[in-house]
Every structure is written in C-alpha cells, then in structure tokens.
Design a binder for these strands. Structure first.
Lengths: 355, 355
DNA sequence: TGTAAGCACTCACTAGAGTGGAGTGCCAGA
DNA sequence: TCTGGCACTCCACTCTAGTGAGTGCTTACA
C-alpha cells in the first residue's frame, strides 16, 4: 500500500476532494495519457503508472468509482475512459505542481526577449506568436490599458487645405491620433495658436476627463479649430475603452480539433476582439487561472480550455496573456509558458514604461 | 443550332480559345453548378442550362472534349466532371461579365461607408470584416504605403527620468513613434531644444532620406539626445518598409474546406504578414486580378483562388484588397464585392488624405 | 457531319454480416 | 482489500453484395 506522501517527479499526491492517493494517481495517469494520445484510456494502460501498484482489475473498480464521481467518462460501454471537465479541473488544481519550461523553451523565451526591440505594440504582437510556438495553442495578448494615463503632449498638425491631425501622447507612451476637418482655409499660425490653447486645456488630464468648454482665445478661427480638436479628444477617449488585443497562432486550432465545425466556431470567437478581451477579463475576475470547458460560459468554446495570466508591472496589472486550446491541452506546458512569458513581458513593459 | 450571339442574363458567349458556343455554355454550367454544390457535375445536370439545347449524350461528348483540352477533370471514371484550374480561368476570363453586387450587398457597403468613422487603420480593419461578410471568403486589406510621404512634424516628448518618445507625423497622416533611452537626467528645456533641432533636420524629408550628421547645437546634452533621436528615425524608416496588413474572416476558411489540414496550412500562410503582402504584390505585378490554384506559386495555397483589387486614390495606388477562398469560390460575387468596396475605400482614403 | 438513343460498363457509396480485440463489470477466492 | 478469471459488450475493421449516378461507345437518323 503506497504511503500518503509518496511522491514522484515534482508532483505530490494527497488525499483531497474525496480522492485517495491511488485514485488521484489513476486520474493523473488517465489525463496525462489522454492529453498525449487523444484516445480513451483503458485500465491496462494505467497499471504501470507511478503510484498505481495494483492490478488492472483494481484499477477498473477505481475507474468506475471515478466515473461515478464525475471525474471520468466513457464514450461507450466497452471503451476506455476519458477525463471530464471535472477531471481536468482536479488535474490542474491538485496534480499539476508549479513547473518550469524545459530548457529549450526557456532558451527560446530568453532569446526572444533579448532580441526584442521596437515599439510595445509590435512586441506584444510577436509575443503572441512566441506563445503559440511554445505551446501549440492559439495565444492572446492584451496590451496595457491607458486608463490611468494622462496627456503628456497634444499637438495639432496641419495636413492639407482642410485637414489637420490631433496627435496625443499619453504618459504611458501611447500615441493616439484623430483627424479633424477644417471648414475654412486655416494657416499655420492659427493651428499653432490652437495647439497652444489645446495643450493648456488638456495637459496632465486623463483622456476621459477632457471635455467641456475651453477658455475662448478671442480669435474666432482658433476657437473653431479648438472645439473640433476637443471633440476629437472626446472621440479618442470613447474609442480607447477597450485594450488592444493581439491573437497569434490561430492556425493551431485547426490542428487541435478534427471537427471543422469546432474550428470554425472557435476562430469566429477569436475574431471578435471585444468578446475575447471580456472573456479573459471574466476569467481573471472569477479568480481562475484556467477555465475548462463550460466554466467560462461561452458556449462555442465548450470543448476548449483557456489559460490566463495577468501581466503585472510593479504590482499593477498591465495586460493579460491568454492561451486557448482543446480541453485536452498540455496544461503543465501552457501554464509554465504563460508564467515565464508573462514575467518576462512584465519586465520588458516595466523598462519601457516611465516612472 | 444556337446562333453565335445568343445571350442570356448578362453573359455573352462567343467563340474563343478553341471553345465553341455550346462548349462554353457547358463549361459555364459545370463551373456554376460545382461552385454551388461542390459535387462533381454529371451530363444530366447540364442539359437544362441555357445555351445547351442538346441531349445528355451530346453533352457527354462535349464534356469529354473539354476534359481532353484540360478544362474539366474527372475524380474517377464513373463520376461527373469538376472544373480544373484552366476551367476556372476560362470561366473568369470569358464567362464572367462585369457584374454588380446584388442590392442587399450594395446597401451593406453603402451603410458601412456612411457610418465609417475613426482613423484609417481601424477603418481598414473593419473593411476586411465587411468583405469577409459579403463574400464568405477571408479578406485581406493592405494599407497605403508611406513611401512618398514626407515628415510633417517631429517632436520629442519626455516620458520619465530616462525615457523619451520621438513622435513623427507624416504628410499622409500616418503617425509613428519610437522610444529612446536617455543616459542622463535630461530636463524639458534640453528636450525642447533637441526637438527644435530635430525638426529643422527632418521636416519635409522622406523618412528614408533622414540620417547622417545633424548640425551640432553646441550643447553636449542636446547633441546626445539628437543623435539618439535620429537613430530612432532611421529605425522607423527601416521598419516601415512593409505596409500594414489587416486580415478578416479567416474563420471562413474553416467552412470552405473539409480537410482540416488544408485549413491549417492556409491559416498558417495568412498569419505571415510579409508573405501575404508580397503574394498580393506579385499577383498584381503579373497583371492578374484573379490567381487560381497554382498560378500564384504558393504551394500550400494550391487549392485556393485569390482575388486582388488595387485601391487607387487619384490614379496612384494606395493599397490593395485581397480575397482568398477555395478555387470553387463564387468569382462573380468576389469580383463585384472587391470592386465596389475598393472604389468606396479609395473614395474614403482620398477624403482622408491631404492634397 | 452532327445529334440522339441505347447499352454495357465503371466505381463510389451504402448496408449488412462477420470477426478480432480492447475494454468492461462481476464474482469467487486468497 | 485486492487479484485472477470469466463472460460480455461494442467499436473498428473487413468483406460482400447491391444500388445508382455517371461514363464511353456504337449505331441509327436527319
């Protein structure tokens, strides 16, 4: 009889949630095997697993118990078992210790961030590709929100006879622009004048707090430009509510499922930025790191699992990493990759962000 | 015997490329039928098509001739015919007259562009979604290149102790940014000073023509900032070579093919921006509007057809629209949608672009 | 010479029967 | 409580017609 604190690898099996040591070991073996093979796992395949020192007959009776308790399911009477969402949940919660990426993956991540250059947006974009490569899942990267940023610079640039651009630089390094049409022919001095007034009005404020009447400059043309510019700022603030999303490696979903329908519906979801961002937000808000099957409540993703990892910079949340794959995805790999990439990305963002 | 100038609908059949009127009508019927059903088309299904007033036996002998000439193929001896790439090519070149979108589609496009607002990038992004909706294909939209644009404004904005942002506004309304690290603690007057010198150096020049030594300002700190800023401009110019690409509706590829492998390889291509942009470029350069099957030379896309449509603003090329779907895509629909959306988009870009 | 009608043939697709094997549940015994 | 044995289940596979949509060919006719 195996002792309760028997260990193998980095995993420890304890009596939790109604499952004794051996049942946990069997569940562990079934999940691991099924993640690799995608085939129902029979009792014979499990007897050699560590922690299971009993015959297949005993394994069978344990498996029957695990099925009664909802951890395993049988596609049909004479088939092996596959894990249920509850089974995966137990696996993730109790059988997956904190593990690191293998050395190859670690090196890949390090090389990536050593070579990372360019602006934040393109780095986030390429990070989604890196994550997809590492985990063979589709990867989502949500950029930092600009909520708490204030206007560091605002400028009016004339582009043509009747066109000007309002360019705003926020304190977190984000740059936003919006074009405005000018009714009259405005010369550069008027624009410069309006630019100065606009700066006086907006500098140091959060984008969402700008609005209201601007102090009149005394010049009719300047005032007209000014009000158009402020309207542009308000539009910017409205459109800025949602964070930027980068999705990479969605082609991996095609390899993960054999039903084309499933692939299609998952891809359709991934194309909807708002849905994805709020989905990740919801999962984090419920305190989860992994949402399995129906747990996230998005029906077309019922056969998917989602791993989320908030990116923090100096303790503040500065974005999110998400991985999406089939429920039989490689959780240890996905979790460790998300953790390491998240840490590194946070580090990089900290360097690139002022204060 | 049908006369040579017999017409139906908007299509006219003429004797071209070895195909007499009836063979062309049969080919037309086979392609149209196959595009709809994705099933091999037998001689019986064709006898009722307009322009084919003969028995199925005669159709069979014509089909055999079309097969000999490479326009049709047979999956196996006792199956109907499916079009070859050459068959689609003939269909597109000779049997697809210039047609318009149906009224529903036209209205959808008009509504879209009436409601279009915001900046160019987001409009291009949403345009890719519109095209995908209209055609049920994956859509690619390549934004205007900034090749001929000159620097209209350049500015240095301090972000923190050791961080500043170089913000460039180009004459076509594009805004680019690049962060630079400052070794010493630089105060705002130094930044402003450097900003002025930088403007003197860069204004009016194309981004790619900036470089070389800047006139020394006499202040050591200012010069240090200046050289870092110029280096940033050079980096910008280098990274700016490739145009922006927006891909929408890639989930449609999952519905178009039944082989998951094909879906995967097509999606993998669509994820590679450089490949897609140069692919569209190549097709346009060879003078094609539609590239069918192997014509574009990208092996994983051998079962795809690509429709391209350059967007022109005042005669100059200002981007590209691309549609990708299976070779049995609805060519008339794709062509008319691309044409109409391309026109409207060009119109919009003209309004939003100075001069 | 071009078209139509008839006929034999091909071959994917389907349904049904048979078989092997992987898997199960149950039970008696250590 | 565990094990070995046993009967049972049912999927996956193969094999065998049978069916039908489709063909090519040959002959007859205007």
């Amino acid at each position: 009889m195996p002792s309760v604190d028997e260990r193998w690898g980095e995993k420890s099996l304890e009596v939790v949630d109604d499952l004794d040591t051996r049942k946990a070991a069997i569940l562990n073996a079934v999940v691991t095997e099924y993640i690799g093979s995608a085939q129902p796992v029979g009792s014979q395949h499990v007897v050699d697993a560590p922690g299971v020192n009993v015959s297949s007959a005993t394994v069978r009776s344990d498996m029957a118990a695990l099925e009664r308790d909802g951890y395993l399911a049988q596609p049909h009477t004479s088939a092996g078992r596959i894990p249920t969402d509850k089974g995966y949940r137990f696996f993730v919660d109790h059988l997956t210790g904190p593990s690191d990426l293998d050395s190859g993956g670690r090196q890949q991540v390090r090389q990536f961030f050593d070579a990372a250059h360019g602006e934040i947006e393109s780095m986030l974009e390429r990070t989604s590709g890196l994550l997809a490569d590492l985990t063979d899942c589709a990867a989502m990267v949500v950029g930092p929100s600009h909520e708490s940023a204030v206007v560091r610079s605002v400028q009016l640039v004339g582009l043509g006879q009747h066109l000007a651009l309002v360019v705003v630089v926020l304190s977190d390094g984000a740059v936003q622009k919006h074009s405005i049409e000018l009714s009259d022919d405005i010369d550069d001095t008027v624009l410069a004048d309006a630019s100065t007034h606009l700066a006086a009005h907006a500098l140091g404020k959060a984008l969402t707090h700008i609005g209201g009447p601007v102090n009149p400059s005394g010049d009719k043309q300047v005032d007209a430009v000014l009000s158009a510019a402020v309207a542009a700022l308000v539009t910017m603030a409205a459109g800025d509510g949602s964070e930027q999303l980068f999705v990479g490696g969605s082609s991996r979903m095609a390899a993960a499922f054999d039903a084309v329908d499933t692939v299609r519906s998952v891809l359709t979801i991934l194309e909807q930025q708002l849905v994805v961002v709020s989905l990740l937000r919801d999962i984090i808000d419920t305190g989860l790191t992994v949402a399995i099957g129906a747990e996230h409540g998005v029906e077309p993703l019922a056969s998917c699992a989602i791993v989320v990892m908030p990116i923090s910079v100096d303790g503040a949340e500065a974005g999110t990493i998400g991985l999406i794959g089939p429920t039989r995805m490689n959780y240890p790999l996905a979790l460790s990759a998300a953790r390491m990439v998240g840490d590194q990305l946070g580090e990089r963002l900290r360097e690139a962000t002022p204060r």
